Simulated assay, not measured.
Amino acid sequence: MFAVYAESFDADEPLNALATGERPEPEVPDGWTVVDVKAASLNHHDVWSLRGVGLKEEQLPMILGGDAAGIDQDGNEVVVHSVISDPFWMGDETLDPGRSLLSERYPGTFAERVAVPRRNLLPKPAGISFTDAACLPTAWLTAYRMLFTQAQVAPGQTVLVQGAGGGVATALITLAAAAGVQVWVTSRDPDKAERTRSLGAADVFETGARLPGRVDAVMETVGAATWKHSLRSLRPGGVVVASGATSGWAAETELNRVFFLQLRILGSTMGTREELRRLLAFCEHTGVRPVVDRTLPLAEARDGFAAMTEGDVFGKIVLML
């Protein structure tokens, strides 16, 4: 079957590690099944895999991709939840210390077919296209968990989203606005920041700019470059939810501000099957849909990876089969 995979690692030029071509059909352990992939979307995780983060050389070649929507062996239209937990793990799958993701321990979704545990398949609502559904299981699920599980935002509150344009950022803005939350956005790219108004952003600011008021919650995916601004933007008792650090991991914590203002700092990673189920229902009933930057045939995946590494993306890149 045709697939897109990592054949080596290159920390500086990740596209040098990318390969396309024929790979063996997926192995199907007990309790697993095969999905014919119709659409799969790119995430920064896929680029990091090419850099050698989360993979070992003995795992190569590894088919990339975690997000997918397709058709299972019974002819059902399904969405794949890519967090693979121990079959005996109970509760939140993201807290399983032995959890993995498709394309880490198991071949991923950038292929004509992918093997997944049966429990990881959710019905795709008829009103949501394969293209849109393929955007949801990582970036949009991450955003959903950050907003509604971790920060527990409510209508009428104000949320600051640090950074604009990527899959998680556009999901955060769209979901929060649809839930009646006032959304402020910061970005170094004025054009991308301005485009977020069409997603529901109430106002946009330059990165680090003084805001007109304090916010109830900050959604933080940038890291070191915005961390101090995130803490200083919170009202007393506010919460910052961090799910990434694209600009670097190390930042001044300002513990005096944290304890004096009783701020909360929460980490967030991916989301559960139940949260994905709720996200699908949210999109189905509200009409909210992911922002798709572009769609490409699977054979042209390299162009999508190039756009992502260059930062030339607003929304999600989807690979079609």
Rank of each mutant, 00 (worst) to 15 (best):
V78I: 13
A126N: 02
K124S: 08
G156V: 05
V80P: 05
G180K: 11
D36I: 03
H45F: 14
V313F: 14
K38Y: 03
E57Y: 01
G304P: 03
L122W: 01
T174P: 08
A176H: 03
S187R: 09
G167D: 06
V288L: 14
G75N: 09
D203N: 11
L296F: 10
V47H: 01
L121V: 01
A201I: 01
G213W: 04
D189G: 02
T196Q: 05
A224C: 00
S100N: 14
L298K: 06
V318M: 09
F259W: 14
E27P: 01
L50T: 07
G271P: 04
V79N: 09
A19S: 15
N120I: 09
L64T: 03
T142S: 15
R105F: 05
A224Q: 13
R294E: 13
T149E: 10
A68N: 13
A115Q: 11
D92T: 00
V116L: 00
T142F: 14
A134N: 09
Q162D: 00
L101T: 01
P290I: 07
A11Y: 05
V79D: 02
G287Q: 05
L276S: 08
A306V: 05
E13M: 04
F148G: 12
T286V: 04
W89S: 05
L199S: 07
L60W: 00
W184Q: 02
E220V: 10
R145H: 15
T131K: 08
I265R: 01
G167H: 04
K124Q: 08
S243A: 15
T286C: 06
A69F: 14
N43S: 13
S41W: 11
H229D: 08
G311N: 06
V318R: 12
A224K: 13
G98A: 09
L280H: 08
G70A: 12
L60G: 03
L102M: 11
E27K: 14
E22N: 06
E254F: 05
R188S: 11
P290A: 03
G165S: 09
E275V: 02
L319V: 03
F205S: 08
G267E: 04
G180D: 02
V291Y: 01
R188A: 05
D216A: 07
A111T: 11
G238T: 13
V47P: 00
A40V: 01
V37F: 02
A3K: 15
S129M: 02
G31K: 10
D12N: 14
R257Q: 15
W140K: 04
S8R: 01
F130M: 06
A69K: 13
L296W: 06
D216M: 04
D191M: 11
R294G: 00
E7A: 02
W227N: 00
S49C: 10
E254R: 09
R264P: 00
P29W: 11
A69T: 05
L160I: 03
R195D: 04
P87E: 08
V161K: 05
A6N: 07
S100P: 12
